[in-house]
């Protein structure tokens, strides 16, 4: 599928040649894996990833990544394009399943349970770990139907009244209700870009997931819309764990509690957002946040 293909290309852009922290050894399988610096683990994690590797065919896109996502926190993933942060994000709700050449190893625990386990069904998994995409992608339906889509397919409601309630609550949470309450039957595609993206977030939270994955949700938006979405993310943190991939370091600094820095498929450094931006511990992180590349 096209999304997958473009990811494949991004994931291996081998343009940033940097000095390896660990000397290369030909003996190990993952010879160019770098050790992660910083606090990988948190107490009481929502998601715990251990030694996650992703391969696209022969290409090793994600290398031995371990990290935790805590409850009620926003984890920002930053890094130059092609560093694998989006790929990693898509592992968390198994969106990579749709890419036939993609193979994932390692362990990803959601509330202590391996999501790649044999008996796990992706459908209920994705109802718990929902995803918002880079480009706003409202369905060609009315605003109401867009938000109602998830609750309907998952059978979360028993009555129209209940559904109305969920739609309103979700739109309110997404700070969109006041703008659209009079035209719920208008097509979702008729909204502005920022409104569309908030509609997509509303659509995601309508199914009350535990984790929301956001893949550069503001990259297609203007600054005002971006500000609204960022404010929304901050509010949503109360009830959800959020992983957000972003190109903008300012955005990561504004919305996240912890930040992870990816580089060429490696997780270089992870830690409290404030610490990471103020005194990065790894040379590569410092180079990146001081704007030497990326």
């Amino acid at each position: 599928m096209t999304q997958g293909k473009s990811m494949t290309v991004n994931a291996f852009e081998d343009t940033h040649e940097t000095k390896p922290v660990k000397p290369q050894s030909t003996a190990t399988v993952h010879r160019d894996v770098r050790e992660t610096v910083g606090e990988v683990r948190v107490e009481d994690p929502r998601i715990r990833c251990t030694d996650v590797n992703v391969y696209y065919g022969e290409k090793h896109a994600i290398k031995n990544i371990s990290l935790d996502v805590g409850k009620g926190e926003v984890l920002a993933m930053i890094g130059p394009s092609g560093c694998g942060k989006s790929t990693f994000l898509r592992c968390i709700n198994r969106m990579n399943d749709t890419v036939s050449s993609c193979r994932v190893t390692g362990e990803i625990l959601l509330d202590g349970e391996d999501i790649n386990g044999r008996h796990i069904d992706v459908v209920p998994l994705r109802a718990r770990v929902s995803m918002v995409f880079q480009k706003p992608n409202p369905f060609p339906k009315s605003i109401y139907e867009n938000v109602a889509f998830g609750p309907k397919i998952h059978g979360l409601v028993q009555s129209k009244a209940e559904l109305d309630e969920i739609v309103e609550a979700s739109l309110r949470k997404a700070n969109l209700w006041d703008e659209v309450k009079d035209r719920l039957d208008d097509p979702g595609l008729g909204l502005s870009g920022g409104q569309q993206q908030r509609l997509c977030i509303a659509r995601s939270i309508a199914i009350e997931p535990e984790v929301i994955l956001m893949d550069e949700p503001c990259s297609a938006l203007d600054p005002i819309s971006t500000a609204k979405v960022e404010q929304l993310i901050d509010e949503l943190r109360q009830n959800y764990s959020i992983c957000i991939v972003t190109h903008s370091m300012q955005q990561a600094a504004r919305v996240s509690q912890r930040t992870a820095y990816f580089h060429l498929g490696d997780l270089i450094e992870i830690g409290k957002t404030d610490d990471l931006f103020i005194k990065p511990r790894h040379q590569l992180t410092e180079d990146y946040i001081t704007g030497r590349f990326g």
Partner: peptide
Amino acid sequence: VPQSLRDGAYGMGATRSETVRQVIFPA
């Protein structure tokens, strides 16, 4: 039909047939 619509539906846990019937078909 753009892949992003499929992703949107799959990303929320729609099955293939739900995606086809409720997203791709109307689109």
